[in-house]
Amino acid sequence: MTYVGIIITYVFISNMILSQFLGLCPFIGVSKDTDSAVGMGFAVTFVMSMASLVTWIIYHGILVPLNLEYLQTIAFILIIASLVQLVEMSVQKFSPAMYKALGIYLPLITTNCAVMGIALINVREEYNILESFTAGFAGGIGFLLAIFLMSAIRVKLDKERVPRYLKGAPIAFVSGGLMALAFMAFDRALLTNLIG
């Protein structure tokens, strides 16, 4: 697949949240206001791109030559956990302003299914290193787009009268469902029409 195709696929067609349900916990948990949603979105994009790169190198550089593919789950989760730690420390040291904006979201990302998910998807789709990186980055942008739209909806919802039992998470799920319905307009046929 071309790089443009990968970007369109992971931002719109197989959007991490709205069509693959990866990263739903922050989607519901951190989408109450727009600022933190955008912060979380950028932090996830950054970690997803880095994680795609590093897991590809470790998988194809170490696990495959040694026939240790069955260790992939353990290896990936350790890579992601240490990567998140590393990113947190380096951001704190080199860019205090960025740390202030993203810092509190970074620890949460270790257990974000989207990061682990994209690493596993890269292996399944047999992407090369640049395709993996592109998929990770596009997946992150898709996540950012969905969580940003969701936070905008929830800010509006706060001002509306919502039936008592639907308040909070349930109405967020219903709004997410309607959003996913709109995203269904993006499908494989669209991709074929766009880039052939």
């Binding site: 967020a172 799920f173 469902g177 309607l178």
Partner: peptide
């Protein structure tokens, strides 16, 4: 996928 989110809500 939309059905999953609606049912869940």
């Amino acid at each position: 996928s939309p059905g999953a989110l609606l049912v869940m809500g």
